[in-house]
Design a protein around this nucleic acid. Structure first.
Length: 209
DNA sequence: AGTATGATGTGCT
DNA sequence: GCACATCATACTC
């Protein structure tokens, strides 16, 4: 038994805005897809954060190192990093090659392959399956092996679009930081139940078209 | 609804 | 030693 696949078209590298902050906004309402032998797992991107050049909280801020090299690849490559010893985070490189910037995928609305996601996270309610950056990678089956992979191939793990744009995009400060806490670099889909973070952040968003 | 805490790995952000 | 781009659980209001 196999699901009908949604008509998701792979995003090309040339489709991506060069600017990190524009890219983080652009990805709201796009799709994260993981095609596996067992089937497809996918979701609509409802929350991202930007880590632009010069941001002291960016993992690229200290310069290129073995562990953060993926942030310096051409736009559209995965940067996967373990945080707090338990949670993998999926980022995508931004700006020109060698620059060192990226966006963090913080939450998706699960769409395809729900049984596969639920199998990885037994007993977790649908709403919590991929609400949060660590949960997202758990649900999609993403680990360290994905670091450095091209997300613009349309195969394996890739980003895509359905011809339907987000009506509006919410903007707030980022989550989990102890510095640079004032910058409006978190983007999300207003009204989505699948967005992570405290409710109070949703009460004061600037909403833009 | 909000707040506190422990688990756990990695690099000194 | 300590700070993390976190999560699940236990506890309070």
């Amino acid at each position: 038994m196999r699901n009908e696949l949604l008509p998701i078209r792979p995003l090309q590298r040339d489709d991506l805005p060069v600017d990190t902050i524009e890219l983080a906004r652009f990805m709201i309402g796009k799709y994260l897809v993981h095609d596996l032998p067992e089937g497809r797992v996918s979701g609509r991107i409802v929350e991202t954060e930007a880590y632009p050049v010069g941001d002291s909280t960016s993992h690229a801020f200290i310069g290129r190192r073995p562990h953060n090299g993926s942030m310096f690849l051409a736009p559209g490559h995965a940067y996967v990093r373990l945080t707090y010893g338990l949670s993998y985070m999926l980022n995508m490189s931004a700006e020109a090659q060698e620059t060192g910037a990226g966006i963090l995928f913080r939450a998706i609305e699960p769409l395809e392959g729900l049984p596969l996601m639920e199998a990885r996270r037994p007993g977790v309610p649908l709403r919590d399956l991929a609400r949060g950056p660590g949960r997202l990678t758990m649900a999609l089956g993403i680990g360290a092996a994905f670091d450095g992979r091209d997300l613009c191939t349309g195969r394996g793990l890739w980003i895509g679009v359905i011809e339907r744009e987000a009506a509006s995009i919410g903007v707030t400060t980022r989550i989990g930081l102890s510095r640079e806490m004032d910058r409006p670099l978190r983007f999300f889909e207003p009204g989505s139940a699948f967005v992570s973070g405290p409710r109070k952040l949703l009460l004061m968003p600037h909403s833009r078209a």
